[in-house]
Design a protein around this nucleic acid. Sequence first.
DNA 1: CATGAATGAGAGTTCATTCAT
DNA 2: TATGAATGAACTCTCATTCAT
Lengths: 215, 215, 215, 215
Amino acid sequence: MEAQLRRPVEQRVAGKRAQAKEQNRRVILDAARQVFAELGYGATTVRDIIRATPLASGTFYNYFRSKEEVFQAMRDETALALRPVLREARLKCETAEAFVSETFRAFFSYVVESRANLPKLKRTEAVHVRVDTIEVLAGFEELRADLDAAIGRGLFARVDAEFLTASMVGIAFELADVLQSRETPDPEAATRFATALVMGGLAALPKRESPVPAA
Amino acid sequence: MEAQLRRPVEQRVAGKRAQAKEQNRRVILDAARQVFAELGYGATTVRDIIRATPLASGTFYNYFRSKEEVFQAMRDETALALRPVLREARLKCETAEAFVSETFRAFFSYVVESRANLPKLKRTEAVHVRVDTIEVLAGFEELRADLDAAIGRGLFARVDAEFLTASMVGIAFELADVLQSRETPDPEAATRFATALVMGGLAALPKRESPVPAA
Amino acid sequence: MEAQLRRPVEQRVAGKRAQAKEQNRRVILDAARQVFAELGYGATTVRDIIRATPLASGTFYNYFRSKEEVFQAMRDETALALRPVLREARLKCETAEAFVSETFRAFFSYVVESRANLPKLKRTEAVHVRVDTIEVLAGFEELRADLDAAIGRGLFARVDAEFLTASMVGIAFELADVLQSRETPDPEAATRFATALVMGGLAALPKRESPVPAA
Amino acid sequence: MEAQLRRPVEQRVAGKRAQAKEQNRRVILDAARQVFAELGYGATTVRDIIRATPLASGTFYNYFRSKEEVFQAMRDETALALRPVLREARLKCETAEAFVSETFRAFFSYVVESRANLPKLKRTEAVHVRVDTIEVLAGFEELRADLDAAIGRGLFARVDAEFLTASMVGIAFELADVLQSRETPDPEAATRFATALVMGGLAALPKRESPVPAA
DNA sequence: CATGAATGAGAGTTCATTCAT
DNA sequence: TATGAATGAACTCTCATTCAT
């Protein structure tokens, strides 16, 4: 009886407290995303994150143990959202072009859609230190792995895999930045541009810089 | 000794001092370069720089007013070295390909040659925050300007200038990283790769996506 | 089940609660005893005590208002156990020797018997700060009072009462420590030693350091 | 010339700065001594020490890295002062009584003389947690070692060495406290008392309680 | 009552910066 | 100028304590 009066309330509504807790976690993560984007990871302090929040300083530590930990949580979160999309897009690709365009498309789409979270992505005034967007970070390793695999299974001509990956990453990075700086970002345009650049480039690329013989 | 015979004491001392002074500036700049590379710009503190120096903390302020200022000085220094090379290389270009390859060549060469100054370019521990190499930063705006100009004077097809610039910058950035991670970096190979990618891509690029974006 | 048949719900619950309540008090007191012994009183925080408990932090404050209060409660508890023993032992003493030996015996016995509660009595790492055992603290004032009384009623030669008390306390303190550090502590041996020391010493003591006339 | 004008100034007066530095070290050490005595080692915070000082918070860390380190420095300092006195006093002893009385005399004298440094030795109000005086700590191990040696070389009857040492330490501890609480402390009186107690006690002690305990 | 998240004061420590020497 | 100790603001993190559930 007694118990019935007390416990189930929380259980029914999934717990007001549990709800508030989840919400605070969100608040902190969102604030962190903002602040990292504004100040860069290195310059950001835990206090900066807290200040971007209506919470008290101690509260932060109920959720994360350090700035590193929030950051990791952010990355995980993003990766969780981005990975399946990228994976699915690439798996069904049979041509190199499809692989490339699907990758860019998924990436630029995500960046543009999640833009709300990064309103003030700002290159530190005079200093211009690039801190990788979370989105970028999440896609980074993913792309490397997939691209290596794709090259491995012959989807691409035998070019220098590391160079190609690096180039795609660099293009993606920078175009994403450009996109985000535009009033009405057009991910499709970026996708077309990037894909054409890479595919056209590949065609023109001297095959096999690496030791493998010509003939 | 020698000097003693030739000049009055005052000047001699002034000379020595001026020398020492210039030397200290160097010491600080070199230390800063190292530390920025190791810790990233944001995370670096003035103390970190001083600690990487045999100088006393107060001495720092005889030369720079803040970390921002050393950083600026570093950029200026690099730009001073890099700019004439790039400018010269590009000025005599008549073809787009020459423009592109000369740019990449100048850039990669510089990066590789100045490598001694950046022994420990290191992606911050687990976190992977990219801090732009000073060299990269220095070439950045330069390239934008020149590329815009080149596009303007019809050297390139009328593609989205911003996209193209961003792509070249991105490729340059990332290939530079790859180069620096290699035992025996081959700037020519990187130049060939990057040039082929861009030129081949350009050929494949749908002309005039957009009339050139606003800001 | 049983209870269900005999008592109305309210009382049953109240009974259970009262029981749980008393048990929680115990849990906290025991945890506190441990933690005080491990960290020393000064360095112990309320959190430390709570952490040594399966209880929630808020629960602590249903029983005690502060670390001081738990501590006081511990002392009271111990005093409650130790006092009657000491009192009884001393009351029936007619000789000084009996008084002294009964005091030491009661004390050492208690210390050894309650040893289970103090498994890790530990001198703080490198620092060697003595934290008085609770038992010691409890017996402290008691001894002072009794000894003063005994001296007052002529049980001891007219020595400096304060010096004598202090000495007995000091001996008791330190021997207790030694006892607790031994594999198989022998309270009787300690009692014999301490008693002999004090009684022999008393015999040798120059009477009346204090103002009281000779004759 | 130049150097002559600059350097020697500092060297001549042993350096105003060096002097100030040494003085600050003193200030911190003295404050620490006070605060440890007042609050106990465990409860003392670095900030407490700083507050007992006219210095700024950061200054503490120019001298010591932690509370542990100041504490260690204090102990070292005291040991440095106390050790030679005790050693010398004991070395020339041929009788047990001389050994004991010299030890106590040296100890009590030191405690009384250094009293100025410990004006407010205060047992924390209701709580009474004893923290060993620095003086006591310094003499502690010393005494143990010397006493063991003395027993070893037959200066004392073959009593339980550990018990005897503990007793002497306990007596010394507590009498020192009493002394320090008195208006006009008389170290000679304490010495006589303690010596008589121990020597008289020794005479009365049952020889060889145990073959000397293990560890 | 028990719970445990929230709170903000305060501890330990580092920082940028000044200034007497 | 070079030095490096002093300073106090600011940072990371923990604490005691409250209070909605």
